[in-house]
Structures are given as structure tokens and as C-alpha cells.
Simulated assay, not measured.
Amino acid sequence: MSNPINIKKVAEMAGVSVASVSRTINGKGGVGEATRQKVLDTCRSLNYNPSITARKLSSGKDATVGILLSKNDSQLSPYVTLIYKQLLAQLKERGLVPEIVYEDKIRSLGDIASSCIVIGATKDDPRLPILDEMTIPFVAIGKQQQGWWVAPDEFMGIRQMTMELINRGKKRIAFVIAKDEEEVASNVRFQGYLSAVESVGLPEKAIVFEGKHFQGMHVCSHFYRHPEIFEQVDALVCNSDEIALGILEVLKHREIQIPNDIAVTGFDDLPLVSANLTTIRQNLDHIASNAMELLDKAKKQETPYGVVSPVEVVMRETS
């Protein structure tokens, strides 16, 4: 029986150390270009491909899909972490690897990836025309007027949530969102909220706070500095779970009954931390799988279209 191909065999055949092979196939530094190429050539000759990382190294940018974050995104944000996990699973099935790229490095995409998925794409997103100019096939996660996109049904989800609050007797409902370059009126979730309150003649109220990253912390600060808000509302429809959980943290220290005095709702249904929160659940697996299917079509230059992913209103203790 022949010996199985492993990292030691590759090192022996290439005439280099095991450490050099390990660092090469794991994409780490500290290996000279000549040694790196020798390892990759040996891996190919032995048909040894231990990981997706090695496939990326040997195939170059053709095996790499850029995951493009916006100025407002952080790799540490709960939503980015969750959608990235789902995308990673889809990419692995196709033998592809992700490369996270921030908006300010968008021009580097052409050197490292053959296609791209745009996270958190908004109306008139400045990243999209740049990608068009660079002729990089891409799919936007976020509803667009043209091109390839997939998005949760944010409008209907928030509208249904707001109507449920209205049906439960809430009449002073406000929408809470972090300040962004996009006008609040252009935000799809705000539009869903607005549609609901206008349909029954209730007043609209948008509470906008400063803080792009770690929004739970920033919304806490905002409500601590403006406690009068709690006297003006009986329900808070939040743009994300992170915001809703921040507000609930403030309410813990006040004599306010949830949800009798004030109901609080979120959007995302974050695992574990949102267990008691009324929220809207996205099907991230559905979004990720459709994003990859659309990306395959985009690469083939087929006629573009978008996919709306259904959402689910989840009523819990905070409403």
C-alpha cells in the first residue's frame, strides 16, 4: 500500500522544511517566493490540496471572491459575522475562498478576486458604480433598482411588525436608527414603518443617533442623555437587534414596564442574545445561497435580476 500524501511527504519531495510547507498552504508569511512556488508546484504534482487556502494560493484570484464591506461595517458586527459564516459555507461547497475588503480598498479588488459580494448595499451605494467601472461581476446584498441583488423583505417585515404593535394598542411608535450617509427617508426599513403608521393616521417619529460601529453602545449613550424620549413613546421599532438590546439595557435601570409602558422590537434575530426580543428573523442561509447562485450567473453575463428573501416576524416578551 502506498503511503498517503501528507505535509511531510510534500516537504520531502520539495526539499524544504515541514514548517515552510505549513506556512505556504496556510497563507502565512515568512516564506521566500522561490520556496513558496516550489511547495505549490509539488502540491500540484502530487495532487495534494489539503485546504481551500491551498486552492486559493494555487489558483490565484480566480478562486477568490471578495466580500466587500461598507464604511459602516465591521468584521466584529453581529450581522456581518453571521452573514459571513453563511457565505463561507456556500463558498466552500464551490471550492472558493473569501477575501474581506473594506470600502476604502475597493480598487484593490481587481488584483485579488475575480468576483465580489457587496455586504449591506444601499440605494445609490457608491461602491456599485466603481465595481461596474472595474468590470468585476458582483452581487449586492441589499435591494437595488438594477443589477444582481438579493435582499430580505425588510419593508414588509417592518411594516408587519409595526402593524402588530398598532393592533396591540400602541399609538406613539418611533423608529430608531443610527445616523448614516443615507437619508433616513431612503432607508427601506424606515419606509416599512412609515407605511404602517401612515395607514392608520398615527404620527411618525424617527430617533436618529450618532454611531456607525458598536451601535448598541452608542444608542445606550443617546438614551441616557435624552431620557425624555421615554415619555414621548409607547413603542420603539429599532433598525437592528443591536440597537434594541442597547435600549433594553437602559430601560433596565428605569421604572418602565416592558412591554406595557414601552414595547421594543429589533431586526435580525441574533442567536442567543435576542432570545427574549421581539424581532424579525432573516433567512441568512437563503440569502447566502441565492447570492452565490446569482454570482454564478453574473460571471456568465446573464440578464441580471434580484431576489427578495422572505422574513418572519417573531413575537416575544418585549412586545
Rank of each mutant, 00 (worst) to 15 (best):
L236C: 09
S221M: 08
S186C: 08
I173W: 03
K170N: 06
G246E: 08
A174R: 13
V176Q: 10
R168A: 09
A185P: 06
R172M: 13
E198A: 02
M217E: 15
A185G: 06
A206P: 04
F223S: 05
Q215K: 15
A185T: 08
A185F: 05
K252S: 06
A185R: 06
K179E: 09
L251Q: 05
I229N: 05
A206V: 06
H218V: 06
S221F: 05
K205V: 01
V233Q: 15
E231N: 11
I166N: 02
V233H: 12
K170I: 11
I247R: 07
E181L: 15
V233P: 12
V197S: 00
N167P: 01
G201L: 00
N167K: 08
E249S: 15
E182L: 12
Y193G: 00
C238V: 12
E181M: 11
Y224N: 07
K170P: 09
L236K: 15
V176W: 13
S186H: 10
L248C: 11
I173Q: 08
F209V: 05
I229W: 05
G211H: 11
D180Q: 14
F175D: 03
A244H: 14
F175R: 13
G169R: 13
N187I: 06
R189C: 03
I247P: 08
D234K: 13
R168M: 14
D180L: 15
A235C: 05
L194M: 07
V237D: 02
T162E: 05
E228P: 08
A178I: 06
V188N: 04
M161H: 00
S195D: 04
Y193P: 00
L245R: 13
R189A: 04
A178G: 11
P227W: 06
I229H: 03
M217V: 14
V200I: 01
R172P: 09
E231G: 10
I166H: 01
A185E: 10
L202M: 02
V233S: 11
D234F: 14
V233C: 15
V188I: 07
E181K: 13
E210S: 10
K171G: 02
S195W: 00
D180V: 04
A196Y: 03
Y193A: 01
A235F: 03
E198Y: 02
R225H: 15
F214E: 12
V250S: 09
K170F: 10
Q232V: 05
K170C: 08
N187V: 07
V188P: 07
R172K: 15
S199L: 00
V219T: 14
S221C: 04
M161R: 00
V233A: 14
